[in-house]
């Protein structure tokens, strides 16, 4: 454990009125480091999350996502660097940061011999709610998460989906400004997943800052207005999902249906400049059109379509594939690999 001393006066050390916390971002991470028995789990991580943003946190298994999220939630301590939550130094004053954070871990944690209502009552008491205030707060989160019918059920008997709703209800008890959610949809069935997504969307519309990690990139794409990609504890990309989708984009994937055999298509495509055969599917194939074939992407597509339609392949369907976030993520990882950096998975 390294010895860390705060030598500079941070925003958290100054009085609230002087610090101007209202203008400070929801989360500010600077030069974060974390070691585990010699393993550098988080390396010089720096990023900022603005208030009201819904940010997806993406990375392969072992990339350092959960370690980073636990540090943001003040449950683990960095070996170097700083974390500010709404302007509060989360390392030195974790209790101030905790008031602003709702933490939703991947496993919601069960107690034997305790009902849903008693669980919420316990956390509401712990948060300092007394008397009628406590009951009102519990009633509000129960209504929001639709836990009404489950109040008398023992929590260790809940399904994963119900448990995750309970976990969200607990995290919302103190009406936090920031929600940190570590793989909340992991292990949920599709229905529970859709429901959780809707709840998160409602919270985002309400102005809450949501920092969420998930392996299902398509889900993050729908919910998040920014994405952070992390690999080996290092930030490899931070930006809007649209920017990310077009990052490292050198070619446009297209789906083409034709009457000729895939082998004939593959041999024909080899003769075309700027067009690559990706993979076949029933009645067609995926091709890749190089971006710089013409002046713009659209003109490159038009040129490729013209060349293909002039052939004897019997093209009857041609459409551009929306580049998926998964593709962007894979491209980023490939790019890193080509630069000689190892990839964790």
């Amino acid at each position: 454990m390294s010895v860390e001393i705060e030598e500079e006066q941070t925003a958290a050390d100054t009085p609230p009125e002087a610090a101007g916390r209202d203008s400070s971002p929801a989360i500010r991470v600077q030069n974060l480091h974390r070691y585990f028995r010699g393993v550098h789990a988080v390396r010089d991580l720096s990023f900022t999350v603005d208030r009201g943003d819904v940010v997806g946190f993406v990375g392969a298994n072992g990339a350092g996502k959960t370690t980073t999220m636990r540090m943001l939630a003040t449950l683990d301590y960095p070996d170097g660097g700083s974390i500010e939550i709404l302007g509060h130094d989360a390392v030195t004053f974790p209790e101030k940061a905790r008031k602003a954070i709702g933490w939703v871990p991947d496993d919601y944690g069960t107690y034997p011999h305790m009902t849903v209502l008693e669980y919420l009552d316990f956390f509401a008491r712990s948060l300092g709610y007394r008397g009628e205030d406590r009951c009102e707060r519990i009633a509000e989160v129960i209504d929001f998460t639709h836990l009404g019918p489950l109040l008398d059920r023992f929590i260790n008997k809940l399904s994963k989906g119900m448990g995750q709703r309970l976990c969200l209800a607990r995290a919302l008890l103190h009406d936090p400004e920031i929600l940190i959610m570590d793989e909340p949809a992991a292990g949920l069935d599709p229905k529970a997943r859709v429901e959780l997504k809707r709840l998160i969307q409602v919270l985002a519309e309400d102005g809450k800052t949501v920092f969420i990690s998930s392996h299902i990139l398509s889900e993050l794409d729908e919910m998040c207005n920014a994405l952070l990609f992390i690999n080996q504890g290092q930030l490899v990309h931070h930006g809007k999902s649209e920017q990310l989708r077009h990052a490292n984009e050198e070619s446009i994937p297209v789906r083409v249906r034709f009457t000729a055999s895939p082998e004939a298509v593959e041999s024909f495509v080899e003769t075309l400049e700027g067009v690559t055969f990706l993979d076949p599917f029933q009645g067609g194939a995926r091709l890749s059109i190089r971006h710089d074939l013409a002046a713009s992407a659209e003109e490159s597509l038009a040129l490729a379509l013209k060349r293909l339609s002039n052939s004897d392949l019997g093209i009857h369907d041609f459409h551009r594939e929306e580049r998926k976030l998964e593709d962007a993520f894979i491209d980023i990882l490939d790019d890193l690999e080509s630069k000689g950096e190892s990839i964790v998975s």
Binding site: I142, D143, H146, K191, R198, V202, D206
Partner: peptide, 20 residues
């Protein structure tokens, strides 16, 4: 925040009114 619409979950349909 306004509660989101309830999804047709059997657990929820079978229970008492959601408003507590």
């Amino acid at each position: 925040a306004t509660p989101p619409p309830v999804i047709d979950s059997p657990d929820l349909i079978a229970g008492p009114p959601a408003e507590m």
